[in-house]
């Protein structure tokens, strides 16, 4: 007998629960996903894996950022990437060409990764031999923000080709960011309608205190500050993990 499937209701007692009743539930609607995300997070912590979720619109430069990041940091950290796209293995192949493992999740028509998809992909990775796991979410400024994956930090990219009012138009995904990266700043010279100060103002109006870093994966400008941020995240994650094991 349990409390969940109805096997505890018998002809003898089925009249007992109140009839015509309102039953208070008070559960989050994403409880299923959040439960799985919690499990993923425990998985990462147990193996000392720092998981970073990258979100942006399609074409903001997530994969290019990862390529440049891996090229620079692969001797320092053991890196792996989980790629989310509706179709193709293209991004995973670009990452593998950098010499690190990449798992491609093709979501079909789903517009975001969820904690269950991520968990499934984790089984294909040797977490024991990973320090830093990047999750490249489906390019979309709407849905990925709503689904916790178990990551330690969210990084949202805003490319200079998109318009500086994106944080005002898509507040959720920018509010969820622990770090905002202004990407493709090498193009600022030819884009006279993108004002980084305005982009930051829109971000601050969301009550976000997340740092905003400007960089270009192509020219290398500003990349050091991003590497520095990653190193700090890695360091504080290790500290939290050590304390929890005491």
């Amino acid at each position: 007998m349990c409390d969940s499937c109805g096997c505890n209701i018998t002809p003898g007692n089925q009249h007992l629960p109140q009839r015509g009743e309102a039953v208070a539930v008070l559960q989050g609607l994403l409880a299923e996903n959040d439960h799985q995300a919690l499990h993923n997070r425990e998985h990462f912590d147990r193996h000392g894996v720092l998981a970073i979720n990258l979100m942006s619109s399609p074409g903001a430069g997530k994969t290019a950022l990862l390529e440049a990041t891996i090229a620079r940091l692969k001797d320092r950290y053991r890196i792996a990437v989980i790629e989310g796209d509706l179709e193709t293995e293209n991004d995973a192949e670009r990452i593998r060409a950098q010499g690190v493992p990449a798992i491609q999740i093709t979501t079909g028509s789903a517009c975001h990764l969820d904690a269950h998809m991520l968990h499934h992909a984790l089984h294909k990775l040797d977490l024991e031999n990973i320090d830093l796991l990047f999750i490249e979410n489906v390019g979309n400024l709407v849905c990925p923000a709503a689904f916790d994956l178990g990551q330690r930090a969210n990084v949202t990219l805003l490319s200079t080709t998109e318009g500086d009012d994106k944080p005002a138009k898509y507040p959720l995904i920018f509010r969820a960011a622990d770090l905002v990266l202004l990407s493709k700043i090498d193009l600022l010279a030819v884009l006279d309608d993108f004002d980084p100060a305005k982009a930051e103002q829109h971000l601050r109006n969301l009550a976000s205190s997340a740092p905003m870093l400007s960089l270009s994966a192509r020219s290398g400008e500003g990349m050091e500050a991003w590497f520095e941020w990653l190193a700090q995240q890695k360091c504080s994650h290790q500290a939290v993990n050590r304390r929890s094991k005491l």
Binding site: Q14, R19, G20, E21, A24, V25, L26, G28, L29, L30
Partner: peptide, 14 residues
Amino acid sequence: LLLLSVQFSEESNH
């Protein structure tokens, strides 16, 4: 984003 409550009818389904 909450499931607040549910309401059941008087008559039995079982």
